[in-house]
């Protein structure tokens, strides 16, 4: 199994912790599920504990919770516009779930559940289906005017409308692949450079320096990709609520 352990993609392997089968479906409790539960418990416990004895002048821990609340609330107000406040709980949970997934994965020897396309695609599909339903419920048939750009000559319409339609339906794929590709590429690059540290012997300090720099970049990317996922959700919500 030496080959499997030196394979940089070995870290993404899913292992069954509690094997469980219902009918023909494999619903085992895996390491991926364990990290998701851990992320949800961590966020919930942190927010509950820091606001339990909430004061008017916040302490250090309480201000972390308040800062993250205000950060997301401002982002939704600026990007999704009027009438989007009621979607705050969903976008806040989405942001925290992805952020914790990315950050827990930065601890060595842990599993990153956002590095699996099925997880990110499920999140993106929830956003896409939800936003489309909100748009249809709010505007009915007028929702289709989203696909017709403003102030464009009529003869360009046969070209532009299909492009708009395609760019709308491609959203869940770009949204999920962006997060998944960032996580997989980042973690694989880290594993490859970490492997060079051992194999280069005395010159191992060179890849070690690169690894330290890459970990800083990956921490930035982990936060940034959670932010990008949340802000794009806000922009899609803006389209559905206000039609351009």
């Amino acid at each position: 199994m030496a080959a499997a352990e030196t394979n940089p993609l070995h870290q993404f392997a899913i292992e069954r912790i509690i094997p469980l089968h219902i009918g023909r479906f494999d619903v085992s409790f895996t390491n991926s599920a364990a990290y998701m539960v851990a992320a949800v418990l961590l966020v919930t416990a942190f927010i509950l504990l820091t606001t339990r004895h909430a004061r008017l002048v916040p302490g250090r821990w309480q201000s972390v919770t308040e800062l993250s609340y205000e950060f997301i609330a401002n982002m939704i107000e600026e990007n999704a516009g009027h009438g989007s406040e009621r979607y705050f709980p969903f976008i806040f949970s989405l942001f925290m779930f992805i952020l914790l997934g990315n950050l827990l994965g930065m601890i060595p020897y842990t599993f990153t559940y956002t590095s699996h396309i099925i997880v990110t695609f499920a999140l993106a599909a929830i956003v896409f289906i939800g936003v489309t339903l909100i748009g249809i419920a709010r505007h009915g048939v007028r929702f289709l005017s989203l696909f017709v750009p403003h102030g464009v000559p009529l003869w360009l319409m046969p070209i532009l409308v299909p492009i708009e339609v395609i760019s709308y339906f491609i959203r869940p794929f770009t949204l999920s692949i962006r997060l998944f590709a960032n996580m997989v590429a980042g973690h694989t690059t880290l594993a490859i450079f970490a492997g060079f540290v051992v194999s280069l012997g005395i010159f191992g300090f060179l890849p070690l320096a690169v690894t330290v720099a890459l970990i800083l970049l990956e921490l930035l990317v982990a936060v940034l990709q959670a932010y990008v996922f949340a802000i794009l959700t806000c922009l899609y919500l803006h389209d559905a609520l206000h039609l351009h």
Binding site: N7, P8, L9, I177, A181, N182, A185, L224
Partner: peptide, 25 residues
């Protein structure tokens, strides 16, 4: 700027991901 950085970086990583897939999968 950081939003643009993340979006621009992601497109390049799609290519890097393909390279990793070819090499290791």
């Amino acid at each position: 700027a950081f939003l643009g950085f993340a979006l621009a970086e992601a497109t390049g990583l799609f290519g890097l991901l393909i390279a990793f897939l070819i090499l290791f999968v």
